[in-house]
């Protein structure tokens, strides 16, 4: 029981740190890292659930471990996409800031079509 509680609390702390970082840090790269910290917390939660074996009363439940592998793959793909977008933004705008210089009313910064 002790290790389940410990890992559960660790997962909750990681998730909390991730949410804080996502909201508090302005740079996209830090937000992406914060998302990964949040994700790690959630994955740890799946590990705790597997360990508790709530489903069948077993020592460990394989289903959450299968789910978490899918989750990790998805998170990896998401991180790659986010980093690629950040790089493209840096190349196009000169900085990766998310603060948009709001399009002025007079000029015409509209879409291409």
């Amino acid at each position: 029981m002790g290790d389940v509680t410990l890992f559960g609390v660790a997962g909750a702390v990681l998730a909390g740190l991730g949410v804080y970082g996502l909201i508090a840090s302005p740079q996209p790269l830090r937000k992406i890292l914060a998302l990964n910290v949040l994700g790690t917390g959630v994955f740890l939660l799946f590990g705790v659930v597997a360990r508790r074996g709530a489903a069948a009363g077993l020592g460990a439940d394989p289903v959450p471990q299968a789910l978490v592998i899918t989750g990790i793959v998805v998170a990896f793909a998401a991180t790659a996409l986010a980093v690629a977008l950040t790089l493209a933004l840096t190349r196009a705008a000169g900085s990766a800031s998310l603060e948009s210089d709001a399009p002025a009313v007079g000029e015409d910064p509209g879409p291409p079509r």
Binding site: G18, L22, P28, I32, L45, R52, A54, A82, S100
Partner: peptide, 26 residues
Amino acid sequence: RAALRYLLFALAGSLLYLAGTALLYG
């Protein structure tokens, strides 16, 4: 910039959703 902001919102949303599924499975 709009795409990146959309992606960050969406990823945060889906991770919260995933946390909920972990609790429900548990």
